[in-house]
């Protein structure tokens, strides 16, 4: 199947990606189709090794596909990167250890300076920028105002991940790609960061693609959850999360929330069972 490009969606169309050759070949993506609307918060969930990171890297333009097509609001990924439309939050914070938190989060603005102009004037109908982001305000919102002049080594894991998120949001990206950003954090920190992420997302209206292993995290954050299966990596189900926002503590305890969780767990299990049946 081939999906048409759209100026208002990230479109992945019939994407194939195989690592290795012959016997050892791993089909990380075997014909993936997906359309993510502008402003949508989409989570990708699936068993380990099913190709979630590969898909994210592909959207980020870090991975060449074997066949198929990726377009970001009607642009090639290359052009989207060139206009600094994409913010990446890797699984590890990847802060530069020799720079203070403030220097780390402002570094993207010092790189590829031509991009601001390209975005302003719009390539292929990219919408024009609002006022530049108040980076100090962002740091303040995530509780890093006092740590602005500290080095990454002086921060806790959660603080580093927050800095990494601020670095990505500081660009005001049209797309935010996050690869299990909270997986190394404890439960409480994780939930606090989820809340902060949702708040900033609501204000900035960025499109988010969020890879996770965690079912409740996916349900809490997303408008839609994409469930992937392994070998070949493919989309096995898509679940719209029709819950009101903002999603606070109360909602997390509601039955509707738990029903979504159960539903997605069920989808994951059947994907997993299909996979082990295929392997046997």
């Amino acid at each position: 199947m081939t999906l048409p490009q759209s100026p208002d969606a990230i479109v992945v169309s019939d994407a194939h990606k195989t690592y290795g050759t012959d016997q050892k070949a791993v089909v990380a993506l075997g014909g993936v189709d997906a359309a993510i609307q502008r402003g949508e918060f989409v989570s990708i969930i699936g068993p380990s090794g099913c190709g979630k990171s590969t898909m994210l890297r592909m959207i980020a333009g870090l991975e060449e596909v074997d066949s198929g097509d990726v377009s970001i609001f009607g642009l090639r990924t290359e052009d989207a990167c060139d206009a600094k439309m994409i913010g990446l939050v890797p699984q590890v914070p990847a802060l530069l250890p020799w720079l203070s938190v403030l220097d780390n989060v402002t570094l993207p603005s010092k790189i590829n300076r031509g991009a601001e102009r390209r975005r302003q004037h719009g390539i292929g109908g990219v919408y024009t920028r609002p006022d530049p982001v108040d980076i100090h305000g962002l740091l303040d919102r995530v509780g890093l105002a006092d740590a602005a002049h500290k080095l990454p080594a002086q921060l806790s894991g959660g603080m580093r991940q927050r800095a990494s998120i601020v670095r990505a949001f500081g660009l005001q990206p049209d797309v935010l790609l996050m690869d299990e950003p909270f997986s190394a954090l404890d439960e409480f920190t994780r939930e606090a960061l989820q809340g902060q992420l949702l708040e900033i997302w609501r204000d900035m209206q960025t499109t988010v693609v969020f890879v996770t292993h965690n079912v409740s995290e996916a349900v809490r954050l997303s408008d839609r959850v994409i469930v992937m299966g392994a070998n070949p990596g493919r989309i096995t189900a898509e679940v719209e999360i029709d819950l009101p926002r903002p999603r606070d503590e109360e909602l997390l305890k509601s039955t509707a929330f738990h029903d979504y969780e159960d539903h997605i767990r069920h989808q994951l299990q059947s994907a997993w069972r299909d996979n082990s049946a295929a392997a046997a």
């Binding site: 890297r57 990446l88 802060l95 530069l96 790189i111």
Partner: peptide, 9 residues
């Protein structure tokens, strides 16, 4: 970190 740099072109 290199990935972040690459997505910024």
């Amino acid at each position: 970190a290199l990935h972040v740099f690459r997505t910024l072109k």
